[in-house]
Amino acid sequence: MSNGNKDAYIAALEKKLAELSGIEVDQIKKNQLASAADEARAIREMAEYVDSIQVQKPGVAAAGVVNPQIAAIFSHIKAELGEERGAHSLPKLGFAYGALEPHISEVIMKIHHDKHHQAYINNLNAATQKLVEAEKAKDVGAMNALLPAIIFNGGGHINHTIFWTNMGPNAGGNPSGAIAAAIDKEFGSFKAFKDKFSAASVGVKGSGWGWLGYCPKNDKVAVATCQNQDPLELKHGLVPLLGVDVWEHAYYLQYHNLRGGYVEAFFDVINWANVGERYDKARKAAGH
Rank of each mutant, 00 (worst) to 15 (best):
K6R: 15
A8K: 14
I10M: 04
A11K: 14
A12F: 01
L20A: 15
I23V: 07
K30S: 05
K30W: 05
A34Y: 05
E39D: 05
I43G: 01
E45T: 07
M46R: 11
A47V: 01
A47D: 10
E48Q: 14
V50L: 04
S52E: 15
I53A: 07
Q54M: 08
V55A: 09
Q56R: 14
K57N: 10
P58R: 10
P58V: 10
P58D: 11
V60P: 00
V60T: 14
A62Y: 02
A63S: 15
V65I: 15
V66T: 15
A72M: 12
F74G: 02
F74V: 01
S75E: 15
L81M: 13
G86T: 13
H88R: 01
P91A: 06
G94Q: 11
G94T: 01
G94M: 10
G94P: 08
F95Y: 15
F95R: 06
Y97L: 06
P102Y: 09
P102E: 09
I104L: 13
E106Y: 01
I108R: 06
K110W: 00
K115Q: 10
H117W: 04
H117Y: 03
H117M: 12
Q118P: 01
A119F: 05
I121R: 02
N122S: 09
N122L: 07
N122D: 15
N122I: 06
N122V: 10
N125A: 01
T128N: 14
Q129W: 00
E133M: 12
E135P: 00
V140H: 05
M143A: 11
N144F: 03
A145D: 14
L146P: 03
G154V: 00
G155K: 04
G156S: 04
H157C: 03
H157S: 02
I158F: 12
N159Y: 02
T161N: 14
F163E: 14
F163W: 13
F163L: 06
M167I: 11
N174Q: 11
A178V: 12
A178M: 06
I179N: 02
A180Y: 07
A180W: 02
A180H: 05
I183M: 08
E186V: 07
F187S: 11
S189T: 06
S189V: 09
F190K: 03
K191C: 00
A192G: 09
D195P: 11
S198I: 03
S198C: 04
A199M: 07
A200P: 02
A200H: 04
G203T: 08
K205E: 05
S207E: 08
G208L: 09
W209P: 00
G210M: 03
L212V: 00
P216M: 07
N218D: 13
N218H: 12
T225Y: 01
Q227K: 10
Q229L: 00
P231M: 08
P231L: 06
K235S: 09
H236P: 04
L242V: 11
G243N: 13
V244R: 09
D245S: 04
E248K: 13
H249N: 10
A250W: 04
L253E: 14
L253S: 10
Q254T: 00
Q254E: 07
Q254W: 03
H256T: 08
N257A: 08
L258F: 10
Y262E: 08
V263P: 03
V263S: 05
E264S: 13
D268Y: 02
V269D: 04
V269H: 04
I270D: 07
A273R: 13
A273I: 12
G276A: 05
R278D: 01
A282D: 05
R283A: 09
A285T: 11
H288W: 08
H288D: 04
